[in-house]
């Protein structure tokens, strides 16, 4: 099975430099994304998932810097691209949509002006063509009466509408890769489903690859083909979506799955993951999850495990699956029981 790999991230490391410390927000992340597929990057706040996304488009703000690794997008290493090159790629070949639709549109311009701008920058379309294409795009993302909406200001639209406009803008130039940074977090549940449906639908139609950043396992189940679970700036588990839900291996993944309410089993109390994400400037020496892990042993506190293949479609960063495991050899890391 040879698929065309559109994005190949190798050992990406991104740090923030404060006065005297280097805070490693992303610490050696690698994954591959085949064309037309969706990868979900999952993790709690502070796990480095958004920084990974911003690194791909080189959108990091001042103290943040990519310190190592490669981001190969169609044979081009984005970490080495010039400012000019990366600008041509942004919005044209790789687009991004953001978490906060309420503030992602410039309040002083109409929807039409903003869509036209992207088209003008990348395709040199004039006002008339731009408006025509803009109306088509708004129609595509399911906005009713697009001819009227295109003359309106963002404050005249609802949150769901604005997120659709954002998607329309992101898709204006038929990008090959869409990075969606928690696109549904700020929306209510019914609108969430619609937005995800639109993204899925457009992905099929344009054979687009998607990086879906989220902390919502429900979103993952609905949209993703592959999942990378991140914790403390590192990928702790990487698998295809079925495997993640059927046989989660890493205690953290299991913890995430256990903390979601289920509709098929009557549960009185959810099982949270105790404790907090470690602060990036005070990372545990060994496995980053060790302080919160119910199975942690001395080895876990001492040494960082590597991301190893444990089955055909699953890579896990955990000592339990290695030969050096010094805890209970019978330990079972079980995800929520599946009735189906």
């Amino acid at each position: 099975m040879s698929e065309e790999i559109i994005l190949d991230i190798k050992d990406l490391r991104t740090s923030f430099f404060t006065e005297d410390v280097e805070v490693k927000a992303v610490d050696g992340v690698s994954f591959k994304l085949p064309k037309g597929k969706t990868i979900g990057i999952v993790g709690e706040s502070g796990s480095g998932k958004s920084i990974t996304a911003l690194s791909i488009l080189r959108l990091l703000e001042h103290p943040g810097k990519i310190v190592g690794g490669e981001i190969n997008f169609k044979d081009k290493d984005l970490t080495k691209a010039s400012d000019r090159e990366i600008r041509d790629i942004r919005g044209n070949e790789i687009s991004m949509i953001f978490q906060e639709p309420m503030t992602s549109l410039n309040p002083v311009y109409t929807v039409g002006q903003q869509i036209r701008e992207t088209l003008k920058v990348h395709q040199g379309l004039g006002k008339e063509q731009g408006t025509k294409k803009g109306v088509e795009l708004l129609e595509l993302v399911g906005i009713p009466s697009p001819k009227k909406r295109i003359t309106q200001y963002p404050h005249e639209l609802s949150g769901g509408m604005r997120q659709r406009v954002m998607i329309a803008m992101a898709l204006a130039c038929n990008p090959e890769l869409l990075i969606a940074d928690e696109p549904t977090t700020a929306l209510d549940v019914t609108i969430q489903a619609q937005i995800l449906e639109i993204i899925n639908d457009l992905q099929d139609r344009f054979d687009m690859s998607v990086i879906m950043i989220t902390h919502d396992m429900g979103v993952v189940a609905e949209t993703c083909d592959y999942v990378a679970v991140m914790y403390g700036g590192k990928v702790v588990e990487y698998a295809d979506v079925k495997t993640i839900f059927k046989e989660p291996k890493h205690p953290y993944t299991v913890g995430l799955l256990n903390s979601i309410p289920r509709h098929d089993v009557d549960v009185d109390e959810l099982e949270p993951i105790r404790g907090n994400v470690p602060s990036p400037n005070d990372m545990p020496k060994g496995c980053r999850f060790a302080p919160r892990c119910p199975f942690a042993t001395d080895l876990c506190y001492e040494e960082l495990p590597s991301l190893d293949k444990v089955s055909d479609d699953n890579q896990v960063r955990c000592w339990i699956y290695s030969e050096r495991w010094d805890g209970d050899p019978e330990v079972k890391v079980n995800g929520p029981e599946r009735t189906s």
Binding site: R87, D88, I89, R90, G91, N106, P107, E117, T118, M169
Partner: peptide, 27 residues
Amino acid sequence: KNLEYIDAMRALGASDARIIFKHIFPN
């Protein structure tokens, strides 16, 4: 400059000059 629509414009490929004059200035 830290509002999301400025990030969004940058993510869509706008240059610094365009962001400054077309997006920050009117605001």
